[in-house]
Computed example of a mutant assay.
Amino acid sequence: MSSDAWHLILNGKNANEDTVRDAVAALRERGRTIHVRVTWEQGDAHRYALEAVAAGAVAVIAGGGDGTLHEVCAALAATDRAAGELPALGLMPLGTANDFATAAGLPLDPLAALEVVAATPPRPIDLMRVLPAGGGEHWCVNVATGGFATRITTETSPELKKLFGGAAYFLTGMARMGSIRSARGSLRGPGFEWDGEFLVLAVGNGRQAGGGQLLTPDARLDDGVIDVMVLPPPPPGETTAALGALLSRGRAALLEAAVRTRLPWVEIEAEEGLTFNLDGEPLEAPRLRFEAVRARLCMHLPDVTPLLPDEAPAGRSPG
């Protein structure tokens, strides 16, 4: 069974927003069939994505933040179908941080986001497959973070995010500065080994997390590798100076102090166990393997996006 319909999987928090309703109405007035499914609890987005596959939808649009995008991507990627046999992925960014959308150059206005789906052909994108020790399979479209960054993400309250948006992560980080504790782990990949303590560990298919922090700024969605960034703790007695440099110089100071590499896969192990956030979703394990899976999905993105080659695709899909 096939259909030219779009399925919009909308986070329930955004269901009553006038801008979302107006955007859907505008596309329907142009003749586009859009089925809207509103999530109520964990797992709904996953189930709705599979229903869209079964219905032969031409596009599945994640309407929400990075977590909603994560759940939809994971559902599609876990099927036994090739990218060309799955609905194309779209994104209507409605979250607090919208890290993936911001890095990709996607518009944050709901109507403009739907118009990207209507006007641009889908292009293949890589995903990260995450395999924890003991079995199981997880997927990540943007950035997985561990260490102090993970603590900031998990401890930032929904109320603070509602008030301050992406800046809430920065405020939480400032409040926790006095309790910074490094973790210890080892990393291994083709031609690469590293062992030691770290404050922040990021594995990126996309570029930013935590409300705008560019942790893997050179990552691309189509290169078959994942970008790894490890930030070791500063030497004894230099913590205050290092934090001052991060606050005053931001990304430049972070990247100067970091260990960075690009690999088709990387295995990460820690004796005390690891807590990672995959697009904001927590995962705990003593050992994790991250793999770049080339062209696992196709996605509607702007003609010009930092996450894909500079040249725009040759054709355009019918609106």
Rank of each mutant, 00 (worst) to 15 (best):
D99T: 13
F100C: 04
A101H: 06
T102S: 13
L106M: 05
P107T: 06
L108Q: 10
L108N: 08
A113D: 04
L114F: 08
L114K: 07
E115L: 09
A118G: 03
A118Q: 11
P121F: 10
P124M: 01
D126I: 01
L127A: 05
L127M: 08
M128F: 00
R129S: 11
A133Q: 11
A133I: 02
A133M: 08
H138A: 12
V141D: 04
N142T: 04
V143W: 05
V143L: 07
G146H: 07
F148P: 07
A149D: 05
T150I: 02
R151Q: 15
R151W: 15
S157P: 07
S157C: 12
S157E: 15
P158I: 10
P158S: 13
E159C: 03
L160I: 00
L160W: 10
K162D: 15
G166W: 11
A168E: 12
F170C: 00
T172Q: 14
M174V: 15
A175E: 14
M177D: 00
M177I: 13
G178R: 12
S179W: 00
I180Y: 03
R181D: 00
A183M: 15
S186G: 15
S186R: 15
L187M: 14
L187S: 03
R188L: 10
R188V: 06
G189V: 01
G191I: 09
G191S: 09
G191Y: 10
G191M: 10
F192I: 08
W194T: 07
W194K: 04
D195K: 10
G196V: 01
G196R: 04
E197Q: 13
F198Q: 04
F198T: 03
L199N: 10
V200A: 06
V200C: 12
V200R: 07
L201S: 02
A202T: 01
V203P: 00
V203L: 02
N205L: 07
N205V: 02
R207L: 09
R207K: 15
R207A: 09
R207T: 10
G211P: 03
L215M: 05
P217E: 09
D218H: 09
L221V: 06
L221G: 04
D223A: 02
G224L: 11
D227V: 02
V230G: 05
V230P: 02
P232F: 13
G237Q: 09
T240R: 12
A241N: 04
A241Q: 14
A242I: 01
L243A: 01
L243F: 11
